[in-house]
Design a protein around this nucleic acid. Structure first.
Lengths: 174, 174
DNA sequence: ACCTGAACACCGTTCAAGT
DNA sequence: ACCTGAACACCGTTCAAGT
């Protein structure tokens, strides 16, 4: 006698993202996810291999959410930088997890597309990939440092962000 | 009757750094550290508050090791960038941990000093802090992406690093 | 088919008892 | 003083038994 499914991968991943932001990575336990979706922990293993696979799925979902924001931004690097930062502020734990857990290759590729397009418009096709990597590395490092409190010791963080962005664009266009 | 100490904080942190590189963060257990320094796990709690404090201590030690390399590098940003990358390649897990676990403020400040000095020489005192943050953010983000395999999809990573470095210097000097 | 309680392995941590 | 075995709480994971 088949039993109707009481949850789904989507529901589990969504619950995982919510718990991650509320309780951090250590709080993202199989128990917590199970409780939130209304089943017992062992039932989760019908949908996902293990906790690592859950973390990867949550990381991938975060990247996809970020990609949607980047695609909604205008096609220039300034707008993309600000959209990136807005996303990181809104989902700090999901942002961090994107660089910790192994996310899907396809999702990573899709998130890079708008950046490469905007970089290409600025520096040409030949240097587009290197330029996109320069830009992404800076933005990623800056936001991780900002989120981890490495900038606590003084200075205006907003100003530092704009300084970095403008110098980066100057350097790339030169 | 006092018992002689069979280990020390230094020995524990050193063991922690070694285990971290060999077995990753998940392998850095209190048991593994205790075995390596020759005591039982409960004895570690005479020296460090808990596993989180151990992770912080290991992160701080990693930052101090990095600082020593940066101070040994010549006082220009190109040499500092290459020293930074060399360190990250040599201690990938320690490098990652530096941005994950809460490290000591003083250690972080000391590691920033050579960068701010080099940045100041290039852009002047007023912009030195912003420039150092731009540089550090780029290098940190680049190395994290390189270590996490985000660059797997093609292109020459060494070339991308040199491209980023030269564009960054161009933009900062403009 | 899917769900669950029970069980197991493993880890962090505490503590009373040893020396 | 420091060290340890024993114990506890908590978590990930498996599995036989339920429906």
């Amino acid at each position: 006698m088949p039993t109707p499914e009481r949850t789904s991968v989507d529901e589990i991943v969504t619950a995982g993202r919510e718990i991650l932001e509320l309780a951090g990575p250590a709080g993202l336990t199989m128990q917590a996810v199970a409780t939130r979706v209304g089943v017992r922990a062992p039932s989760l293993y019908k949908r996902i291999r293990d906790r690592d696979a859950l973390l990867s799925a949550v990381a991938t979902a975060s990247i996809e959410a970020l990609t949607a924001q980047l695609e909604a931004a205008a096609d220039d690097l300034t707008a993309l930088a600000r959209a990136y930062r807005t996303f990181a502020h809104a989902h700090p734990e999901g942002f961090r997890l994107m660089f910790t857990a192994a996310a899907s290759h396809e999702a990573l590729g899709r998130s890079a597309a708008p950046l490469i397009r905007a970089a290409s418009a600025l520096v040409g096709e030949d240097d587009a990939l290197d330029a996109a990597r320069l830009f992404t590395a800076w933005a990623t490092g800056f936001l991780q440092m900002e989120l981890s409190g490495a900038f606590r010791l003084g200075g205006d963080v907003d100003r530092a962000f704009e300084y970095g962005l403008s110098r980066l664009l100057t350097g790339m266009a030169a």
